[in-house]
Design a protein around this nucleic acid. Structure first.
Length: 207
DNA sequence: TAAGGGATATGCT
DNA sequence: GCATATCCCTTAT
């Protein structure tokens, strides 16, 4: 199930918590890639010193004031793209940076784009995600809740199954089990106000 | 540890 | 306009 726009139009810290474990999906001409979100970071309001909206509405922060559920793709350090998700009601500036994923579908494509064979090194950082998924500024502003969008976020597989009342036949050990049984942590950083992550996940990006 | 190098905002002339 | 600082990072050294 694709997350509806109502998922995003809530208090950012709530969205942040709920976002962990959801699946980011990208459809491109080269193929489909997806991964479970294991780390994300929130920027909320004009009083958040780490937010682009700290200086008010500018060309750069404008999208954060716009409608929720849109992609906010940002280019930085002259080479890196970053994917953010716009949250809250219109006119309240907030967004969540997607920091790390556990790769799921399209792993061979990710390896090709990232020019590495290491699973661990495919999506363990915000710019790595964009490279592995082929996300760039052309996706700036796209709806994350639309079936027609190349980029969207859906419920995790496990939860979908539970909702359908199906048996949890997959009791296997390993990564998949770890993801869904790990506790979610949420903490306050120095500059970065809020970050949520999956405890125990090896796919969390380096500090 | 530092280089890499584009977009943006700001403060100056 | 222009100069400068900053930026939510990654990679190679």
């Amino acid at each position: 199930m694709i997350l509806p726009v109502s998922f995003y139009s809530r208090p950012t810290l709530k969205v942040l918590e709920d976002l962990i474990g959801k699946v980011l999906v990208m459809k491109s001409e080269e193929g489909l890639t997806s991964g479970v979100i294991v780390e994300a970071e929130a920027y909320s309001g004009e009083d958040d010193p780490a937010s682009y909206a700290f200086v008010g509405k500018t060309k750069r922060s404008e999208i954060m004031y716009g409608p929720p559920g849109r992609a906010f793709v940002h280019f930085t350090y002259g080479m890196h793209h970053m994917l953010n998700l716009v949250t809250e009601k219109e006119e309240f500036p907030a967004a969540i940076l997607v920091r790390a994923l556990e790769p799921r579908e399209g792993i061979s494509l990710m390896k090709k784009r990232r020019k590495t064979e290491e699973l661990y090194n495919l999506c363990s950082g915000p710019a790595k995600i964009c490279q592995a998924f082929g996300i760039d500024r052309s996706l700036h502003g796209v709806r994350l809740f639309s079936l027609r969008s190349p980029l969207f976020i859906k419920e995790g597989e496990r939860r979908e199954k539970r909702e359908r009342g199906q048996k949890e036949e997959r009791r296997k050990k390993g990564r998949e089990e770890l993801i869904w049984t790990s506790r979610i942590g949420i903490g306050e950083g120095k500059q970065r106000l809020w970050r949520a992550y999956l405890k125990g996940s090896p796919f969390i990006s380096a500090e």
